[in-house]
């Protein structure tokens, strides 16, 4: 299908973009558009205006700050600099396809907050944060408070993601696991793990309404994670299958993260 009518606005500065988002009721920022354009084409959303932020300068920096990878909202998912973080290096190939990663942005994926998306899951596991600004001011939102539910975040309608921070701890092994019907499709289930010494951290996605940290038994991470989720059956998979999948993916992710922590 084709998008419903909207006004296309193209600010060249951040201030201009924020003013447009504040002034225009039902405006939506357009970044990579790899989720927004499908939603428009299917007429699932009807914004009055799109504020195309692709020409706003300085929003795509990637650098290291205070032990974290600081990623500008407009950094594309294909950006090689993101792979400096070992968890992102492992998760990013699962994000859509090469052609969608060339356009899709990190900030856009976080703001879209699909329950099965890889980047939100990684941000929650790492305990990262999102920095957002509106004409009213700037704030930092920890990942644990950012994702509220499927396609729902703590962002206000006039707020724009500026940056996300991805903590990178020393002596820590990271791993990401996911199963999708075809590579690049929406995940049935996904798991991310970080291991440092005896400490094991696990987060799961797709089988929960938002990416969720789980307290797992370090001796038995898969089974203890599976016991904590209540997957809903889909046309593709039964709840029992998905629960077992969580067990397998968490077990694999923790095992690999552990090997890397020891290496």
């Amino acid at each position: 299908m084709k998008p419903p009518p909207f006004r296309y606005l193209r600010p060249s500065t951040l201030e201009e973009a924020l003013a447009m988002l504040a002034a225009e009721e039902d405006a939506k920022p357009l970044a990579g558009g790899q989720s927004l354009l499908p939603a428009l084409n299917m007429r699932l959303v009807r914004p009055s205006a799109l504020v195309d932020v692709n020409r706003v300068v300085g929003l795509d920096d990637v650098g290291t700050r205070d032990g974290s990878l600081a990623v500008g909202a407009l950094a594309r998912q294909a950006d090689a600099r993101l792979r400096r973080h070992p968890l992102l290096a492992e998760a990013l190939p699962h994000v859509g396809h090469a052609a969608t990663r060339n356009r899709g942005t990190v900030g856009g994926s976080l703001a879209h907050a699909d329950a099965s998306a890889e980047l939100p899951l990684c941000l929650v596991l790492l305990g990262g944060a999102v920095r957002a600004r509106s004409a009213r001011g700037e704030r930092e939102i920890p990942a644990s408070n950012f994702f509220l539910g499927p396609f729902t975040t703590a962002l206000a309608a006039d707020e724009l993601v500026l940056e996300s921070t991805w903590p990178l701890e020393e002596d820590t092994g990271y791993a990401f696991e996911e199963l999708a019907p075809r590579h690049g499709d929406y995940a049935f289930a996904a798991a991310a793990a970080a291991v440092r010494g005896d400490e094991v951290r696990v987060a799961v996605g797709a089988v929960v309404p938002r990416p969720t940290l789980l307290e797992v038994d370090p001796e038995n991470p898969g089974a203890s994670a599976a016991a904590q989720v209540e997957p809903w059956a889909t046309v593709h998979a039964s709840a029992a299958y998905l629960r077992n999948l969580v067990r397998v993916l968490v077990e694999r992710a923790v095992a690999r993260a552990r090997e890397r922590a020891a290496a």
Binding site: R10, G33, P38, D52, A99, T100, R103
Partner: peptide
């Protein structure tokens, strides 16, 4: 490489 159905001509 990019999907031309996910870009606007205006962009």
């Amino acid at each position: 490489a990019a999907r031309s159905c996910l870009l606007l001509a205006a962009q």
